[in-house]
Design a protein around this nucleic acid. Sequence first.
DNA 1: TCAGCTTCACCCATCAATGG
DNA 2: CCATTGATGGGTGAAGCTGA
Length: 409
Amino acid sequence: MNRASSLESSGHPVATADLVAEIRDFAGFGRATDVEDVDGIRYFVNEFWTSAQRKSHAIHEISYRACFKAQLPEFFIARLTRAGDTVHDPFMGRGTTPVQAALMGRRALGNDINPLSVLLTRPRLASVSLGDVMAALETIDWSGGRIGRTDLLAFYHPTTLRRLEALRAWLAARAPLGSTEVDPVADWIRMVALGRLSGHSSGFFSGRSMPPNQAVSIRSQLRINERLRQSPPKRDVARIIARKTRSLLRDGSAAAAVGSRLLTGHASRTPQIADGSVDLVVTSPPFLDIVHYAADNWLRCWFAGIDPDRVAIDMHRTEEAWTDMVASVLGEQARILRSGGHVAFEVGEVRSGRVLLERLVWRAAEGLPFERLGVMVNDQDFTKTANCWGVANGSKGTNSNRIVLLRRI
DNA sequence: TCAGCTTCACCCATCAATGG
DNA sequence: CCATTGATGGGTGAAGCTGA
């Protein structure tokens, strides 16, 4: 079958015969790809997708620390798969890859060590409507909540906290953790609530706080309250959930994702996925010890009823340990990929560009059944949270997507 | 034991861009 | 107009390490 010349119904060209040629010849933003060899690795530098914020499907817009733009998986899914093919992300985070795959009619697989990932991703692979959500919110007894943790009053007005406790109890009955029999509407409501727990506007349950992708400690919140002379305002939890639901669904939802599967475990051990059953892997691992997922997620763990101490998120401090981790994950991807399938493995520059993680990934792939096609660098300006500590955008931290491209032999 | 050094743990609390 | 979004790193002091 000549995949290179076929076009699927969505209009995306599929399964290019030569990904490297397409990247080399790419000029979608009026700029030619800069190709250079550094220490035997071929780099392709260009702007490959838009740098503008919020240009992908609205259903992606849930808060999570460290997530790539949906345009990244879209770029590879469009070129390397066709409708019905299987796409996997072993480090799915908020689930950008599986959700984008489902939106494009692919079978979506995903995994993450953090149990929050399934809670944030699964509801967006189901078919839920605003009407379903509004109706369910009507059935909740909002006055029935009992405050368990008074320290959370640093974030919430007592009435808000009682409402959140009522919602937690309702969720525990309708969509218990670890159960496969969850009510998809309750599952959706929990996903939305997890993104509204803290923030800096009236669309969040808390008083003014840091953005919800990095919840501050109780102590810090008390200091913020003092400095701003605020006490947390009363919030209409149901109204906030309804409003965010409307926003998330404004572009529609994923057409009931067929055969999707989400796992909670190590990226290097996914025995639930059969040998040779995957067409494309698009992923991005944690970058060394840069992002502290456990600390960021304490408030969400409370809401969801997850014991944060039981979430064993590995931190790889040294480059050697990190490279070993990547090698074991790539070994597992080699097992589940079909011959001719691809891996797009994204990293960023860390430690002010002194550590080039893509070189470590390149080395980790050595000896595995992969053809190493090169490193694609998506180079563009964007703004980020580091501004709040006076770190200028574009100067420090991660400012580009660097994607190691592999083809399964 | 201790000086001298390195590493670790923790704290901090924006603003530009975009879309409704 | 206003709500919402976004892959930190430098400063600090404690703790750890090394060699005499």
